[in-house]
Amino acid sequence: MSNPSDALGRLMAHALARAVALLILWLVLAGSDLADLPAGIVAVLAATVTSLRLLPVGPSRLSPVLLGPLALRFLYQSVAAGIDVAWRALDPRLPLRPGFVVYSVCFPLGSARNAFAALTSLLPGTVPAGDEGSRLVYHCLDVDQPVVSQLAAEEAALRHAIRHD
């Protein structure tokens, strides 16, 4: 990491990965007609430069291999979340025990923690509603649920998908 050529190589690798992702987005939107490609190249270049300026390359990144399973996991969770809130809403007894749960999160302030907060906002019955130093305050639909252990499991899953270069 102290070697400048290493740092440059890492920057190029990150820039390339982001450019490829944005190019795929362009191709999905505009199609692969050759006449549209010049505009696509301009768009991808502008977007990649913006992305590198807004979100500089850090020491850690999401592993592309583990991104798939992570996405599937949270997709499953968001389905469970929808079903959970649907039965609570439709049950005549309205089974709610709303309240706040404080969770000590290991991720430092920054992108990893923001990603964790965003992903856990999709979990059944929880939404991040504030910070207290190193702890996140969650608003829960049912505080009798094992919220803390569930959050810990999600944190482990996300940590597993983050690679440190």
Binding site: F100, V102, A118, L119, G130, V137, A152
Partner: peptide, 27 residues
């Protein structure tokens, strides 16, 4: 995911009733 957090933070005013809090164990 972003809007629900922003609105939740605004609505709770970062306070929350301490009596209703359930602290998790330290990791």
């Amino acid at each position: 995911a972003m809007v629900s957090q922003l609105i939740a933070r605004e609505a709770s005013g970062q306070r929350g009733d301490p009596a209703m809090r359930h602290d998790g164990p330290p990791p």
